[in-house]
Amino acid sequence: MNPGPTGPSNRREHQPAYWYGEAPVPLGARLLASVYAVVTSARRWLYRKGWFGRSHPGVPVIVVGNITAGGAGKTPLTIALVERLRSEGWNPGVASRGYGRTDVADAVWVDADTAPSIGGDEPVLIARRTGARLRADRDRAAAAKALAEAGCDIVICDDGLQHYRLQRDIEIEVVDGRRRYGNGQLLPAGPLRELPERGSQCDFRVINGGEAGFGEWPMRLLADRAVPVRGGRPRPLDSFAGHRVHAVAGIGNPDRFFTMLRGLGIAVVPHAFADHHRYRAADFEFGSPLPVLMTEKDAVKCAEFATDAFHSVPVQAELPEGFWVSLLDRLQALDQNRGHESD
């Protein structure tokens, strides 16, 4: 029998215990972090001084990202941004690197029918949930330009905070409210891609779970239904309360998904896979015929071998109305400034 997510090939070894715990950081990791600090600082300085070229697509650009390695809730927020901006009369497009693509290296347009191996799991999920134009490209600046040329009047860049070649108008940092910045050290000694002061330079800081502090916006991820991966009628998520299920999560912080299910009274048998894991049927040989609940991001990669036991759990990002008012005010100010510049 396949050892499943507890086997060596699927352990989450890319997030050492000392990142979010009290274990001592190895000397080698601290030395490498010092080198990483020099390289990232030099890179930012070169962009700031204009030595490295930057590009703007000519329409407003919102970058959603974080300064920690791993997930923090960027994809649900990106989906919420697309839906709210569309309701306000915008025609948003999404630019994404398409991390995890294995069957293509070139830029691609991603829609609901694109295979995750071609478009990436998160882009396919966003396309299915929103129907927005979505361009997957390692060069986010090129993706933004393609979206503008395709008629989008605003670009949302999913996970592009460190992609400085793309000029942006608004930056939104997403923070895992429970883990925050971990031990506060740079990679590989800690989880940080950049120092914490980089986050303070963003226009908005959104806190996913936990307690939001002064100047921060709280975000909750709400889930109330389970959708059969093979298709069919959704059922209330709380209908699984009091029952054991296999819970599958290949995201940046699987415990967030497991905790959410436990909060509904569901008896969780957790199976944590590495972020962007490419699933096989053998990964689900758990040894007991229980229902399987998984994140949407995981479910898009399991359709080919899913059984009737497989259910996807969609989440909806909920933010205070004040966040949306502030964001829309910022976009209106950008539009007015551009109007003055063109006069």
Rank of each mutant, 00 (worst) to 15 (best):
Leu237Cys: 00
Ala306Asn: 06
Lys145His: 15
Val61Asp: 06
Glu149His: 15
Gly70Tyr: 00
Ala107Met: 10
Arg138Tyr: 05
Val229Met: 05
Ala148Cys: 10
Arg165Cys: 02
Ala146Phe: 06
Gly65Lys: 05
Leu161Tyr: 10
Gly184Pro: 00
Arg168Pro: 10
Pro228Asp: 01
Thr307Cys: 13
Thr130Leu: 13
Ala144His: 09
Leu125Arg: 14
Gly120Asn: 04
Arg129Trp: 06
Glu171Leu: 01
Leu186Lys: 15
Leu327Gly: 12
Lys49Asp: 05
Leu187Ile: 07
Pro24Phe: 07
Ser9Ile: 03
Asp106Tyr: 00
Leu192Gln: 05
Leu195Asp: 12
Arg140Gly: 08
Ile170Asn: 09
Leu237Asp: 03
Gly231Ile: 09
Thr114Asn: 08
Pro8Tyr: 08
Glu88Ser: 12
Val39Lys: 04
Ala95Pro: 00
Asp121Asn: 03
Ala146Asp: 06
Ala247Asp: 06
Asn208Gly: 00
Ala105Tyr: 00
Asp275Arg: 07
Arg338Ile: 09
Arg48Trp: 08
Ser96Asp: 08
Pro188Tyr: 04
Cys152Gln: 11
Ala17Pro: 01
Leu319Gly: 09
Arg97Asp: 04
Glu122Asn: 10
Ala150Arg: 10
Leu125Pro: 13
Pro116Tyr: 15
Arg278Ile: 12
Glu22Trp: 02
Ala272Asn: 13
Ala112Met: 01
Gln332Ala: 13
Thr307Met: 06
His276Leu: 03
Gly58Asn: 07
Glu216Phe: 09
Arg205Trp: 00
Ser312Gln: 12
Gly7Ile: 09
Gly70Ala: 01
Arg235Lys: 14
Gln185Asp: 07
Ala282Ile: 06
Ala241Arg: 07
Gly263Asp: 04
Gly89Val: 04
Asp298Tyr: 11
Asp137Arg: 09
Gly265Asn: 15
Ala42Lys: 10
Arg101Gln: 15
Trp51Ser: 01
Ala317Gln: 04
Asp153Gly: 13
Ile67Asp: 03
Pro236Trp: 02
Pro191Gln: 06
Pro123Asp: 02
Arg225Leu: 04
Pro218Asp: 10
Ala148Gly: 09
Trp45Asp: 03
Gln201Val: 07
Arg54Val: 13
Gln162Ile: 00
Asn183Leu: 04
Gly151Asn: 12
Tyr18Arg: 11
Ile154Met: 07
Ala212Trp: 02
Ala17Trp: 03
Pro314Thr: 13
Gly28Trp: 03
Gly177Asn: 06
Ala299Arg: 01
Leu161Phe: 10
His340Met: 15
Gly213Tyr: 11
Gln167Val: 12
Asp176Met: 02
Phe204Val: 01
Asn183Cys: 14
Val315Gln: 05
Phe214Lys: 13
Arg193Thr: 02
Val124Pro: 08
Gly53Ile: 02
Thr130Ser: 08
Tyr47Thr: 11
Phe240Tyr: 13
Gln167Trp: 12
Ala148Asn: 11
Glu122Cys: 08
Leu334Gln: 09
Val174Tyr: 00
Trp45Ile: 06
Gly65Gln: 15
Val206Gln: 00
Arg244Asn: 12
